[in-house]
Design a protein around this nucleic acid. Structure first.
Lengths: 356, 356
DNA sequence: TGCAGTAAGTAACTCGCGTTACTCACCCGC
DNA sequence: GCGGGTGAGTAACGCGAGTTACTTACTGCA
C-alpha cells in the first residue's frame, strides 16, 4: 500500500480553485471591491478597514489570481514569445538565461518555443512558422528570435503582427531591430592584447571566411594591426573546420611552414574549439604556451576555455547581455516606442586567463 | 527617414484580432456552429456544406484561436511548468531540450521558470517558491522540477496542488515521483568496458564521495569488478575536486605513486572534466592514451569528450531522455494515473570513442 | 393524417476577472 | 431644509471561447 493521492482529487481541488467571488463572499463585499483592492487601483475609494478585511480573506482562502482570465479581461498577457533553435543546439544558452532573467525582473513570462522542427526549410531558415503561430495563439505581446550563431535569418510572416526583436542574428529583409555581438571590436581587442604582449608576427586560424563572425573578427584584427603600423600577412591566415581537429590541422600547417625564427609567436584562433586543437599541435611540438606561442581564442566556451591547461585567454560572446538587451528592447517597443530596423552592437569583453 | 511602423498600429490590429464571432458572421452561422466545427466535435451535426463555409471563413479572415480564452472556458491550459536552475547553470540543458520536444509533440507548452533567485535558502533548496507560485497562477496542469546535478531536493508547498515530477533529482521527503540516471549501471558499464579491454588494475578518480553520483557509480564499479572476480583496491581510489585541475592532481597522485609495473593501466574518471585533467597528467609523463593508459570518463560533456585528443570514451548522462520521460510521466499523471513516489532509473549509455 | 425520430443549428449560460457607470448615505454650506 | 459634493461601494457588461439544452424543419412509417 503505497501512499498515493489521486490526481482526480488534486484536479478537483484545483478546478474549484478559489476565485475572487469566493474572496468577496468571505469578506462580505462585492467582487468589484476585491478587484479594486487587489489591483491597487488609484482612485478607488475603499476604506482601510474593508481593505484589510479583503486582504485577510485572500490569505485565509489562499486565493491565487488566474493569469489567463486576467489576460483575457485586460487584453494584455505579460508574455513574450521566444523562438529559438538554441533549445536544440545549446551553444548559446546564455541568451535564454539573459532573456529569462530580464523578463522575470519585468514581471513577464517567457514562452519558449523550439524552432528546428522538421518543416524548417531553405537556407538560413529554421526560425519556424509553427512555433510563431503557436505563440501568437497565446497572445504574446512581443516576439524574440534567437539564433545559435550570428547570421542573417528570414522571419515568419506572423512576426510582423507584434513587436519583434532578433537576438544574435539579423533580419535578412532588413525590417526588424536586432541585437548582435560587435565582432569587429572583439577581433580588435584580441589582437590588441597580443600586440600589447609584444607579439608582432601573429597567425590567424580562421573560420569559414563567409560568415559574419569571421568577416567581423578579421576586420577587427586588421584594424588593430594597422593601429600598430602593421599589416596582416595573408599567408598567416589559415581557414579550417570549426572544430578541435580543424584547429589542430590549421595550427600544424602554420607551425610547420616556417623555420623557427620566422614562426609566428602568437595565434589568434577565431573560436575556442579550434584553440583547443591548436593547443595540442603546439604541445606536440614541444613548445610551451604562452612561453613559445601565445594563444588567444574567441567565444569563451566555459567548458573549454576555463579547463584547458593553461587556461585560455579569449574574447567572450555577450550572450547573456544580448538576451537581456533583447527583452529590454522588446519592452520599449511594446510600450509604444517606434519600431526601426536598428542593429544594436554589444561589446565582446576580453577574458584574461593564462595563454598570453 | 527610416521605414518605421508604429507599434500602436500593430497593437490595434492585434487587439481587434478576429474572433469566432467574426468568423460566424462571415459564414452566416452561429458562433456555436463555428466552435463545433473547429473543435471537431464528434456528435455535432453540421452539414458538410456549412462546415466548408466555416472553414473558408476561417481562412479568409485569418482567424487564430485565443489560447487563453479557450483555457478559461475549458478549464485546461495545456501548459506544464518547468522549474529549474538549469537556465542559470546550463550544464544539463539537454533536460530542457528533451522535455521541450516531448511537450511539443504532445501539443503542450512548457513554461520555464528559473529557480535560483536571491531568496533561495537552505541546503539543497533553490527550487524556488516564487517561480512555483507564478506558474500556478498560469494554471499549469503539472509541474516539473529539474536539477543540474543528481541530488535530493525539497519542493515548494504549491507543488503538491498539481501533479509533479522531479527530473535528475528526487524528493527528499519521498512523496513525489522522480526520474534519475541509473548511476550504478553506468559505473558498471564503464568498468566493464575497461575489463573487456583487458585491464585489471584500474584507478578511480572519484568525486565528492557523498553525492549520489559518486555513491552510485562507485558501487557499479565494484559490481563490475566483482563480476570478474576482482576487488576494488581502496588505494586506487582518489577523490578530487570536480574540475580539470582536480583530475590532474588526482591522476598525478595515482601515476606517481607506483613503479611502472604496478601502475594502473586504466583510469575511470567519474566525470569528464577530471578526465580532461587526467589527460594532461598522462601526456606530461610521456605516456600515450590509450596505449599506456586507457581513460574512461562519465557525463559525456560534448564540448570536452568529443574534442579531447584522443576523443574520450565516456558514459553519457541521459539528460534528454530524462526530460522527455519526465513530460511523459507528467502526462500520464494529469491523465488520471495515480501518483506514487516511484523513482524511474534511466540508462546511461556508453559512448565509445578512442580513449580505451 | 399523425407522430416519432433525426439532422441541423442556435440561444443562453459559464469560465474568472477588468472596468464603467451607477447608487446610496452622509455631511457641508447657504 | 435643501442642493450638491464626496466617500464607499455595487450592478452589470465584456473579454473569447466551451457547452448544454432547446428549437425547427424535414423524413419515414403506420
Amino acid at each position: 500500500m503505497a501512499k498515493t493521492t489521486t490526481p482526480q482529487k488534486a484536479a478537483a481541488v484545483r478546478q474549484r480553485g478559489v476565485t475572487m467571488s469566493d474572496v468577496a463572499r468571505h469578506a462580505g463585499v462585492s467582487r468589484t471591491a476585491v478587484s479594486f483592492v487587489l489591483s491597487n487601483r488609484e482612485n478607488a475609494s475603499i476604506s482601510e478597514e474593508t481593505r484589510t478585511r479583503i486582504n485577510d480573506a485572500v490569505q485565509a482562502l489562499g486565493y491565487r489570481p488566474n493569469a489567463g482570465a486576467r489576460a483575457l479581461a485586460s487584453q494584455r498577457s505579460d508574455w513574450y514569445g521566444l523562438v529559438t533553435e538554441i533549445v536544440t543546439a545549446p551553444f548559446a544558452v546564455d541568451i535564454i538565461k539573459g532573456a529569462q532573467d530580464q523578463a522575470w525582473l519585468d514581471h513577464r513570462f517567457l514562452l519558449i518555443a523550439p524552432s528546428d522542427q522538421a518543416d524548417a526549410v531553405g537556407p538560413n531558415q529554421g526560425l519556424e512558422d509553427a512555433a510563431t503561430e503557436k505563440l501568437l495563439e497565446q497572445r504574446v505581446e512581443g516576439l524574440l528570435y534567437a539564433a545559435t550563431y550570428h547570421r542573417g535569418v528570414h522571419v515568419p510572416e506572423g512576426a510582423h503582427e507584434v513587436p519583434t526583436v532578433l537576438i544574435n542574428c539579423f533580419d535578412a529583409d532588413g525590417k526588424l531591430p536586432s541585437i548582435v555581438p560587435d565582432e569587429r571590436a572583439g577581433g580588435r581587442i584580441a589582437v590588441d592584447r597580443l600586440l600589447r604582449a609584444g607579439h608582432s608576427r601573429i597567425g590567424v586560424i580562421n573560420l569559414d571566411p563567409h560568415i559574419p563572425a569571421a568577416v567581423g573578427r578579421l576586420k577587427g584584427a586588421r584594424e588593430a594591426l594597422a593601429g600598430a603600423g602593421l599589416e596582416l600577412d595573408p599567408e598567416l591566415v589559415v581557414s579550417g573546420h570549426a572544430t578541435a581537429d580543424g584547429g589542430y590541422d590549421a595550427a600544424c600547417e602554420i607551425l610547420d611552414r616556417y623555420p623557427k625564427d620566422q614562426r609566428p609567436t602568437a595565434l589568434f584562433c577565431l573560436n575556442d574549439r579550434m584553440a583547443m586543437g591548436a593547443y595540442d599541435a603546439i604541445k606536440e611540438r614541444g613548445l610551451t604556451i604562452p612561453g613559445d606561442i601565445a594563444v588567444i581564442g574567441f567565444d569563451n566556451q566555459e567548458l573549454i576555455a576555463a579547463y584547458l591547461r593553461p587556461k585560455l585567454t579569449t574574447v567572450a560572446l555577450p550572450f547573456e547581455k544580448m538576451g537581456a538587451l533583447g527583452v529590454q528592447t522588446l519592452a520599449a517597443l511594446t510600450a509604444g516606442q517606434p519600431i526601426t530596423a536598428d542593429q544594436q552592437l554589444v561589446d565582446c569583453p576580453l577574458l584574461e586567463r593564462s595563454s598570453v
